[in-house]
Amino acid sequence: MSAFLDIFSGANVQWVLIGSLLLGFASGVIGSFVLLKKQSLISDAMAHAALPGVCIMYIIFEIKSVPLFLVGATITSLIATHSIQAIIKHSRVKSDAAIGIIISVFFGFGIVLLTYIQQNSSGNQAGLDSFIFGQAASLVRSDVELITIGAFILVIITALFFKEFKLTTFDPQFAQGIGLPVSFLNGLLLALVVGVVVIGIQMVGVVLIAALLITPPLAARYWTENLGVMAILGGIFGALSGASGAILSTVMENLPTGPMMVLSASTIFFLSLLFGSKKGIALKAVRQV
């Protein structure tokens, strides 16, 4: 037990813990709106599309700089969402196929660039791989600070625009009618999702970060019908998943961080599915008896 506690006394681990808590909270809150707008899988595409952005930045500047990577990831994620919308709007291809195409092609291209870097760069490219599945253990102090501050800002922005987001999610026509800038708000929500993706990729990885946006809010749906409560509960579930994933992968060495966070979130979802106070299976069974 004391060995277990020793792990938490390390300053780096404390930072990782705080970072993963806040990251999980931000993704849970923002994910609630994404879920209700039925954009969960689009967020998955944005996450996968971050990989080529990171690689392009490395190829151009030949240095490992996290802020530069984040800029690259932001650009390609935005290109990905706009491509999905353009495909749906300008061709007969349906939204599900459009998302699938963008996910696989952008990610495939990212892998091409990753292998190109591994073949051709002389510098220290080790660690770019960890963007795929995330590795909390490889984070340095400044990375974690960036995650913490970033997540904090995302939460603040969401809180500031909470009412507006709520209106545009449930009743876009009405929101437009009372003069809310609906397209600006949609764009802002998109930007927040990109924010979660880019600050989360180092810790969770591009493949599974979308799960942190989808699963905690969906679990929260089984406990409440009120959006405000759902967003906060989603945030708490997200924070729990983030922290427990980070701890488990630090305590047991070889375990990848991202998948552990996702499994924690899945466990919370499963328990909510069974015992949730609004739509849980157990409750339904009791009612039927």
């Binding site: 969960s40 989808i214 699963t215 991202g258 552990m260 899945s266 979802f269 739509k279």
Partner: peptide
């Protein structure tokens, strides 16, 4: 069928099972 929208249902199921596989 239990009322979860289809995109979220897909998202939860595949990320969970894939994460389990990776771990």
């Amino acid at each position: 069928a239990s009322g979860v929208q289809s995109d979220a249902a897909i998202g939860v199921v595949f990320t969970s099972l894939f994460a389990l596989g990776v771990v």
